[in-house]
Design a protein around this nucleic acid. Structure first.
Length: 466
DNA sequence: ATTAGGG
DNA sequence: CCCTAAT
């Protein structure tokens, strides 16, 4: 107990250590987990800065069968980072940037201002640059020492706000590369404002007091503040982020203020990476793995039970980099992160070792220090099963039609999946074997096109027999 | 707490 | 990926 807390508090130290000695030797699992998301920024930097280490990592990844399970999670991350070095990343980044600007502009008045001044401080500390978007980026990115300092400060500010700030006003944005002093000053400001507010009830417009909570309706400023006190749920945030595109700019911006606030911090890290990767040495990887989304954020926050003010997970709750725009509109799959090939291989290994249904074990031994939950793994297996059946039908057709047939999975993996599927059929995948065979034949016989076969296969697989 | 199943 | 029911 105490030790864990101690570790947590000093995780910044661990960060440094890990970074200095490039060899990553995790001691405790918890520690590793802790470090992992803190390291995100470092890794970004490292990947972009020293191309040598990048290459070595890339080659390492090429043979992910090394069996160093402990390193697996880390390797995956590295790989992802490598992939981030491609133009896709920069593109997403740019978009993010635009998004941010759009958000932030209308609200330079309130907390946005303090936030920005905060940024300015951090940037001027390193290079004393002016106050504009680009200058901020420059200040942060050009300082070679920034990465370490950043994480330290990040931790400090996190602790500081968690312990000092009675309201979660700024806790939404712990990833922000700020220095601790700034954070504190803001906390103090908040207190002052509150004191002021209590002494002068008429000043309710400046800062909404808890009394007003109920009376708040559509009036913009109160509503805006009210959100800050009532810890918005993740859902809530998402809803508004979606609504933002539809609603009028002003109102939406007011409501999603906290969102853009947090964006500020994350933005910095991303812009930094973007800056550092001008032309990029892409194509470092084989080619087959489709680039997943940014994946900057590691942990998928697991469904907070209560959203109280004490919730410490703020860094993850909104660090969520949902760069999957497509699925954004869909209500589900908001946190979707594509499965990489190494992950799939690990999954297959795990299943072949522990069998079906031991998802927790598989998670423990193969996906430890990964954000994949046992349920995720099971789902992936389910999908894999379906996919393998689909491949079966496609394979034969692909010979006739020279269609690319869209195969992100290498054949050996599909083969292994198929073998495993024979050994232990997934519980109750409606007639897992029978229907698959039927699908296969029917697909080959009936349909001669490529994609219709897939869809038909899926449908057949999923169909419930009446 | 884990798992299965459905969306 | 998410949610829920069942265990």
């Amino acid at each position: 107990m105490d030790q864990q807390e101690y570790l947590r508090k000093h995780s910044n130290v661990k960060c440094q250590r890990v970074r200095v000695e490039e060899s990553f030797v995790p001691a405790l699992q918890d520690e590793e987990m802790e470090v992992e998301h803190l390291l995100e920024q470092h890794r970004n930097d490292r990947v972009s800065m020293d191309a040598d280490s990048l290459d070595s990592h890339a080659t390492l990844n090429g043979k992910h069968d090394l069996g160093l399970e402990v390193l697996d999670g880390f390797l995956d991350d590295v790989e992802i980072d490598d992939l981030e070095g491609t133009n896709v990343f920069s593109g997403a980044c740019e978009e993010y940037f635009l998004d941010f600007e759009f958000d932030n502009n209308p609200e330079v008045l309130g907390f946005g201002l303090s936030d920005c001044s905060l940024l300015q401080n951090s940037s001027s500390e390193s290079h004393s640059s002016g106050f504009s978007g680009s200058s901020i980026v420059g200040g942060v990115s050009e300082s070679p020492k920034v990465p370490i300092a950043q994480s330290e400060y990040k931790n400090d500010s996190l602790d500081g706000t968690a312990s000092h700030d009675p309201h979660d006003a700024f806790r939404n944005n712990p990833s922000q590369p700020s220095n601790g002093d700034c954070m504190y000053s803001i906390s103090l400001d908040m207190k002052h404002l509150h004191a002021f507010n209590n002494n002068h009830p008429l000043a309710g417009g400046i800062l909404s007091s808890e009394n007003e909570k109920d009376s708040v309706k559509k009036v913009q400023p109160p509503a805006l503040r009210e959100k800050r006190f009532r810890k918005p749920t993740k859902r809530y945030i998402e809803e508004f982020s979606n609504m933002r595109s539809k609603e009028k700019v002003s109102e939406a911006a007011a409501k999603t203020k906290h969102l853009s606030l947090s964006s500020c911090g994350e933005l910095n890290t991303r812009l930094k990476a973007l800056r550092k990767i001008p032309g990029d040495t892409c194509s470092n990887r084989n080619n087959d793995v489709r680039l997943p989304e940014l994946k900057i954020c590691k942990g998928r926050p697991k469904k907070e039970k209560f959203e109280s003010d004490k919730e410490p997970l703020s860094s993850e709750s909104e660090d969520e980099c949902m760069t999957l725009k497509k699925s954004r509109s869909k209500d589900r799959r908001k946190n979707q992160r594509l499965w990489t090939l190494p992950e799939v291989v690990k999954l297959v290994d795990g299943i072949s070792e522990y069998g079906i249904g031991q998802w927790t074990n598989i998670k423990r031994f193969f996906f430890d220090s990964s954000y994949r939950t046992p349920t995720d793994i099971r789902d992936k297996w389910r999908n894999l099963l379906r996919a393998s059946s689909a491949y079966k039908s496609i394979d034969e057709e692909a010979e006739q039609n020279d269609q690319p047939s869209l195969r992100p999975l290498p054949f050996d993996v599909v083969h292994r999946v198929r073998e495993l599927a024979k050994i232990h059929p997934y519980p109750r995948v409606h007639g897992s074997k029978k229907s698959r065979v039927r699908v296969c034949t029917s697909a080959v016989d009936g349909q001669s096109k490529g994609s219709p076969a897939i869809s038909l296969g899926k449908r057949n697989l999923r169909r419930k027999y009446t």
